[in-house]
Design a protein around this nucleic acid. Structure first.
Lengths: 342, 342
DNA sequence: TTGTACGCGTTATCAA
DNA sequence: TTGATAACGCGTACAA
């Protein structure tokens, strides 16, 4: 339990002032080259480590970015985190990460923690049920930048980073229609969240543009978990006529739903064609391979952190940028490719 | 960009001393009930938020835990992170997370960052190539607890949290042997890491106990990526005689290897029986479903944080506890279950 | 080029 | 029960 070395210890050792030591250690130009060398040498030798708290307290800046994420353990979100960590690390920022576990209550608590931690900026993907933005106001009014990613919300002071969920869903649904599907069911989640609302919209417009009727009962709102996929399959099996196409808002639910349908003897894609969302690893493993939308999570994480840091460095202004949209694409695989069209 | 409210502002407002305000806000017993109420009320009203840095600086404690992880975006590691975050959140600790990306260089840099951030404790899973512990010494000599999880190393001051990799591999290999496999190949990773060294050992002992010969060329050391699985399959296809059993140290590589073998017309499990490791979601999706070792990542994360916090609170002493071993189990699925034994 | 002196916001100590 | 004061370690305006 050694005592920490401070700049005072170094100053005493070299008979200099703490000021000079501080300057030397921070590459301040106004310090003699030799002095600087001596200071750095002895600092290393004594095992000096700067005290971040004292420094932060003084500088009113933390070099820390707060991240609020619904869940850490999904393939998509863990890719996002990986991309964020890489960029933050490169720019010498730390990442404080918390999960809302899809509840607004935890999201509010997390925001408070982030605020108390004086993060320089905040990256947020909203929980399913969040329906107020009050917990982010303290950041806004303090001038701390807030960026939303994936599950975003319109806010005139915040940038959003998204993919074009409407377009992606539109294309996915059109693809199913082109494969001859007439009764396409959409399995998705809470309509409070842009990602799911936009996808539903894309689905509806695609139906219209393909002269297919919209049926309220063909939209299933769930939490998109593995279990939700199974339950959806059970509902689908009871429907008559059964849907002949399925557009699911994530791959987890798409795959579990497919498997449950297959267990019941449904042939995919011939009886029901299926499209998922995210391009998770399982989508490439399920048989038949799942058609899905490639969602560039890693890049989204990189872009989010990069934008935030740019803004913090005054190189850009996120209060002007409204939305950054990343490219996504439909990856067509066997689960939706019909050999013979009806 | 409002100015932050401090305890001085509150003190002035109520004509009290900052000391009393501080006490009231920290539930100190020696403060009048009414005074306390008044202080808390006005604090809330003024939007006071404690400055963590000032507090940390003064208390020499940060309520922050550092986590070093090889990669964030693997199903196993993201489960571990999720478990850690949950426990940390519950105990009012923050988590600073960094990835080493499997390089020792980054791991060292990360450790420095953590040290500078004055984390109260450090949780580490080692990179493939790490072969010195020097970067953790500063923590040890300062009395900051370090706990290793998953990829651990023997250290007389640190607890390790693991599963019994030897036993797990032993059982997996014996299972293959019982299925009639005579030539079992082991696909694994860098032997510097306990997890892979122990599994190789378990594999070897299982061979011995089943009267099967050990063949150096039947141990493939890779990075266990998806590509590595494909390359392994290509090597396997060239072998003669080909192996008839395959024990792979993670599911990612096991699955990609299986698929490549299947493409070449190999029947699984009849030509080659396969066992993976981790119980990732893909293991339940691949056909035939992959026999694998269930590795409780979420629990490992919880246990790691819980142990650390217990230690920090003086409720236990991790310098005494050598190792915490979590339960793991072989999950037998179709990829290794032979209908007819040779 | 170097140094003096103070403030960042909190908490611990001691005294009243 | 409350308050005055110092200290945590660093960075910076100002002075030399």
């Amino acid at each position: 339990m050694d005592k920490d070395i401070t700049i005072y210890d170094i100053a005493k050792e070299l008979d200099l002032s703490p000021t000079t030591v501080s300057r030397a250690l921070n590459d301040h130009p106004a310090v003699n080259k030799n002095t600087k060398q001596k200071i750095c040498d002895i600092a290393a030798q004594m095992g000096y480590r700067s005290n971040i708290f004292a420094s932060n307290l003084r500088k009113q800046r933390t070099n820390t970015i707060g991240v609020i994420v619904p869940r850490l353990n999904s393939p998509f979100m863990s890719s996002v985190m990986a991309g964020m960590e890489k960029e933050a690390n490169n720019a010498d920022y730390n990442l404080i990460i918390t999960q809302s576990l899809e509840t607004m209550q935890k999201e509010i608590t997390n925001a408070r923690t982030m605020f108390d931690s004086r993060v320089d900026g905040l990256l947020v993907s909203l929980a399913y049920e969040t329906d107020t933005m009050d917990h982010f106001e303290p950041f806004i009014s303090k001038g701390t930048p807030v960026i939303f990613y994936d599950r975003v919300i319109e806010h005139n002071q915040c940038t959003s980073i998204v993919i074009d969920n409407f377009q992606a869903a539109y294309k996915a649904t059109c693809h199913l229609a082109k494969q001859g599907c007439k009764r396409i069911l959409h399995l998705t989640a809470n309509q409070k969240r842009n990602v799911y609302a936009d996808r539903l919209k894309g689905y509806r417009y695609a139906l219209i543009d393909n002269n297919l009727p919209f049926d309220e009962s063909f939209v299933l709102i769930t939490n998109l978990s593995e279990e939700a996929g199974v339950e959806a399959a059970q509902q689908i099996l009871k429907m008559q006529p059964m849907p002949d196409g399925l557009f699911v808002s994530n791959d987890t639910a798409a795959v579990s739903c497919m498997r449950e349908l297959q267990k019941a003897g449904i042939m995919i894609p011939d009886d029901i064609a299926v499209v998922g969302f995210n391009n998770d690893p399982i989508s490439r493993v399920i048989e038949p391979n799942l058609t899905t939308v490639n969602y560039p999570g890693y890049e989204m994480g990189e872009v989010a952190v990069r934008s935030l840091i740019h803004h913090l460095n005054g190189l850009s202004d996120i209060t002007i940028t409204n939305t950054i949209t990343l490219r996504s694409e439909l990856i067509v695989r066997a689960s939706s490719l019909r050999t013979k069209i009806e």
